[in-house]
Amino acid sequence: MENSNGNNTKNTQQASEKVLSSEKREDLWAIIIAGIILILCCISPDAIYTFFKKSLFIF
């Protein structure tokens, strides 16, 4: 019984660490994506604006 409780705790801990490391990865990706968008907006603000505000709306 104690053994199965120990396994459960270990599983929860492993699952939690996996989710937390994926959260960190998501956070880093969010920063990278925002950084890329900032660079693209610095290079060509009008093209980015037109694409997201006009081109993507087809109706």
Partner: peptide, 12 residues
Amino acid sequence: HTPFWAMNAVYK
């Protein structure tokens, strides 16, 4: 026509 103006069009 500025970078932050263009970024404002993206977040949505």
